[in-house]
Design a protein around this nucleic acid. Structure first.
Length: 586
RNA sequence: GCGCCCGUAGCUCAGUUGGAUAGAGCACCAGCCUUCUAAGCUGGUGGUCGCAGGUUCGACUCCUGCCGGGCGCGCCA
């Protein structure tokens, strides 16, 4: 409808230009907007105000000329000039009736578009370190990423979903060492657990598995393990050097093969847990991309070679630096450390290089907001090796701050004191969690009040939307009990009988669904869909309250049933995008 | 100190990319179930859009400066 009106205006302007009433080549974009108030019709256009200066005319006079030049349209019942030169369009009563037919015809395909034209988009999200279970902060990235992926898919993009596994790095070594130390405790060894080790219960469990399956095979005396290890923090030492020394000790005592076994046990147990957690949350991936595999494949070395060739690399104090300041970063960054080890950054350059080489038109990273300082350097690296940094979109998701009993909760994987995504899902359910998470745009800080989510879960808007869906199913159950049958063809012939204001409002809302999907996809804002669904549910519930659908007049009844089936379809389509179920009963 | 994000009703947040009188939900008040599910509907109370300037026909929206909150500024990942 929007496009229809835009076309009418475009041809009016062309007509005016042809007669010389308007100077040509104005170059202004025609925008038609939905009005806020019905007083101003259904759509409004401000083109007369925009072009007034260019045409050396008063906005109202120009508006009158444009209106006179408008081609006739059977969908428009009235055109008015209002205020200081807005052109308001009033739709005919049946202008949108065709959308009901469209929805019933296209069913789950309704709302999909070809906006993306099949362009390939790679999306990476969550990618939490496999050092512990996902917590509620990861849940937000998961819900947001999965929903955005669904949206882009619906908008006609070819979406590839990916999880980057940080399985090469110090954090993983700390985990492996923590697991081994817990194992040693189970073997009967006595020592103080390092403050910088992972202390969650799951580390204990993995240590227990190691013990159950291998007995004392990996046991070493505590005195030997801690021999000449620098003191830990509580004893006046440094916790970082303490844990690093323990990692080296684990590697040397166990040997490369055994260490890798312990390491992989921890990695696999936690990764399986994460994978299952996400799957239950309706979040699935096309690929789980291993950092370790990338490095072992030599990709990091190749990335560094490419950087070197670009001439933006230099040596200083024994380390290899990337001069990211050449591309606007605030300081240069190390890619190879003094000790010869490559940094996480070097690996990440290799990973992003790999993404772009795989032929994606667009690469989207969804990161926690704490990584925002990281964006300029990764873009700098891509620019240095001759890739287009504009192809990379980094979306930063702000933290979800948890409150319980009015108090802010600390979330730290290391301390093991955090609310896991799994706990949250159990408390409020998958549907409410998915919906709640995408109710805010990603740059908005989110207060997640656990007590509220628990105690007032009935007030969660997700139930309101689901209830509308279930109610429509209920109407059909009642229909059968009353001995009626739905004749969609008859309903289709009688769509003109849908003249009530509630019906017009509902139909208009349904007609907007495709616009909402496109807008949400292009702005990366899934919350628009959530808000739309709530409004759609409101339109339905008020309609339901004001009119009976199962009336004796078959023409009206069938037309109304066509309408509510269409509403049910759009609700189901929208909920599907959000990863929320559409129940038939509640 | 520098950088990113946020500041809209008592609370949690929208605001169609600069348009007409700033909107929801929750909470609070008053009504509506022998009639398609009351997880619903109808009405009401509630705002100096953080503050001060600027840009223009027009600013919650764009620019500048303050104030307040969150996060980040490693040869960690």
């Amino acid at each position: 409808m929007k496009h229809h009106i835009e076309n009418l205006i475009a041809s009016a302007l062309a007509g005016l230009e042809a007669t010389g009433a308007l100077p040509p080549a104005h170059g202004a974009a025609i925008t038609v907007d939905h009005t806020k108030s019905k007083e101003h019709g259904d759509f409004a256009c401000n083109i007369a105000r925009v072009l007034a200066k260019h045409a050396h005319a008063k906005p109202r006079e120009l508006a009158e000329k444009i209106v006179k030049a408008l081609p006739a349209s059977e969908k428009i019942s009235k055109v008015e000039i209002a205020g200081p030169g807005f052109i308001n369009f009033f739709l005919g009563a049946d202008a949108n009736h065709g959308v009901i037919r469209e929805i019933l015809d296209q069913r789950e395909r309704f709302g999909r578009s070809r906006l993306g034209a099949g362009r390939k988009v790679q999306m990476e999200f969550v990618s939490a370190n496999p050092t512990g279970p996902l917590h509620v902060g990861h849940g937000r990235g998961a819900a947001y990423g999965a929903t955005l992926a669904n949206l882009l898919d619906a908008a006609g993009f070819n979406v590839h979903r990916e999880y980057y596994i940080n399985d090469a790095g110090r954090q993983m070594d700390i985990l492996a060492t923590s697991v081994w130390l817990r194992y040693l405790e189970l073997c009967g060894e006595k020592f103080d657990f390092p403050v910088n080790g992972y202390k969650g219960d799951y580390v204990y469990d993995i240590g227990a598995t190691l013990h159950r399956e291998n007995g004392d095979k990996y046991r070493h005396a505590a005195t030997r393990v801690f021999e000449k290890i620098p003191l830990d923090e509580p004893k006046g030492g440094d916790k970082e050097t303490h844990i690093d020394a323990l990692i080296e000790r684990a590697k040397s005592l166990l040997g490369a093969d055994a260490y890798r076994k312990v390491f992989d046990l921890g990695l696999n147990v936690i990764l399986d847990d994460i994978r299952q957690d996400l799957e239950e949350f309706g979040v699935t991936y096309d690929q789980w991309f291993s950092e370790r595999a990338l490095v072992e494949d030599g990709a990091a070395n190749r990335a560094i070679e490419r950087l070197k060739k670009s001439g933006h690399v230099y040596e200083k104090e024994g380390a290899l630096w990337f001069r990211s300041t050449d591309y606007g970063d605030e300081k240069d960054r190390v890619v190879v450390r003094e000790n010869g080890q490559k940094t996480y950054f070097a690996h990440d350059i290799a990973y992003h290089m790999d993404k772009l080489e795989r032929g994606f038109d667009r690469v989207i990273d969804i990161w926690g907001a704490d990584h925002h300082g990281y964006v300029p350097r990764i873009k700098a690296a891509l620019a240095a090796i001759g890739d287009d940094p504009e192809r990379l979109h980094v979306l930063l998701v702000q933290f979800a701050i948890l409150y319980k009993g009015g108090e802010r909760m600390q979330m730290s994987t290391r301390s093991g004191e955090f609310v896991t995504l799994r706990e949250l899902r159990r408390e409020v359910g998958n549907d409410a969690a998915r919906f709640f998470y995408v109710l805010r745009k990603c740059e908005q800080h989110m207060d997640f009040d656990l007590d509220l989510a628990k105690s007032q879960s009935n007030d969660n808007p997700v139930f309101y939307v689901q209830y509308a869906h279930a109610r429509i199913h209920s109407v059909f159950r009642q229909m059968k009990e009353k001995g009626f049958a739905h004749d969609p063809a008859n309903g289709d012939r009688n769509l003109a009988r849908l003249t009530e204001p509630h019906e017009r409002a509902l139909i208009e809302r349904l007609a907007r669904y495709p616009e909402v999907i496109e807008a949400a996809a292009t702005t990366f804002e899934p919350h628009q869909v959530a808000y739309y669904l709530r409004e759609l549910a409101y339109d339905f519930h008020t309609y339901y309250g004001a009119h009976t659908f199962l009336v004796d007049d078959a023409a009206v009844r069938d037309a109304r049933l066509n309408l509510v089936v269409a509403a049910r379809q759009v609700i189901a389509n929208g909920l599907k995008l959000l990863g929320v179920s559409a129940p038939e009963t509640m």
